[in-house]
Amino acid sequence: MLKNEIEEKVKQFPTYLKSWVKTFLGGLTLFCIISLIALPFLSQNQNFTHVFLRQFTLAMIFSIFAASWDLLTGISGQISFGHAIFFGIAGYICAYLISYQNFPPWIAIFIGAIGAVFFGLIIGIPCLRLRGPYLALGTLAFSLVLLKLFLMGSLSDVLFGSEGISDYRIQISDNPVVEYIIILMFMIVSFITIIQVSKSKFGTILKSIRDDEVSADASGINTTRFKVYAFMLSALFAGIAGACYATYVGAVNPTGNFGATISFYAILMASLGGLTTIRGSALGAFFFIFLEYSLIVAGAEIYVNLIFALILIVVVRFSEHGILKPILERIKDLWDLLLGR
């Protein structure tokens, strides 16, 4: 039955795509994707390819990460304050495999992501008993324990200690354009999957659990199983992001990969863009990275975090759904005006 369903979907896909592109959101998305693909070929300037483009790559990695958090928290309502667990584990596995086992980066990234899924399972099961803020604090405690274990000098033979793993081979490619394209592919695939999942039956079930767990339970849904699925799926994408980040940086270390800052990055970016919108995560991540970049270029590097805190307060205080919705509405108004509607 499921097979038929999929076959039907595949058959309908071209028509679906055509009508989707004609919609406002579809057209805009397509435009963004095309611009992103075209971007690296616009210039050979080293400052552009090795500095500016690298910031784009970073923003795309964090987009995937923030979207994975949004899937778990926005769609399924399981608040996580320790998303760095998955991010860090995948990064460590990936770096270890490349540096110590000579794996090609491709395979290492996938194994890292699978490792993160495994952790999603391990953490998901005990955390199922927890709800709301308890879950948030439970995941936070979990990530702190991991951070401290990885930091310990006395465990450095097993967990590599405070200096982590570093190796010049931990990279997707030494050409930033190639790296950019590969990460862009990861991002597109991840976003399509996350958005499709959230629209599917599975996503509807997750949303029903988020909105009213008791009635979801009463209507015959095995909430426990679906929550574990949500954890694992979210961990998969967080893991992809974490492994890509490890290759982007070329090294892993406890604070840089398991730190509370990383968890909060996901929360900040996703909520800046707008919770439950998924696409908002990308906007939030790009906004964050490029605000930082322009402040540094403007010579205000020590004020970066201060200004960011201010913006966060203002956005959360005055725009409940982040910046994505208002921006989209403005663009749509403008679009309608241009078309004379």
Partner: peptide, 14 residues
């Protein structure tokens, strides 16, 4: 819930 957490987090960070 999330809004309060975020905004107070922002304040602490500030």
């Amino acid at each position: 819930h999330v809004g309060v957490v975020l905004i107070t987090f922002g304040l602490a960070f500030l």
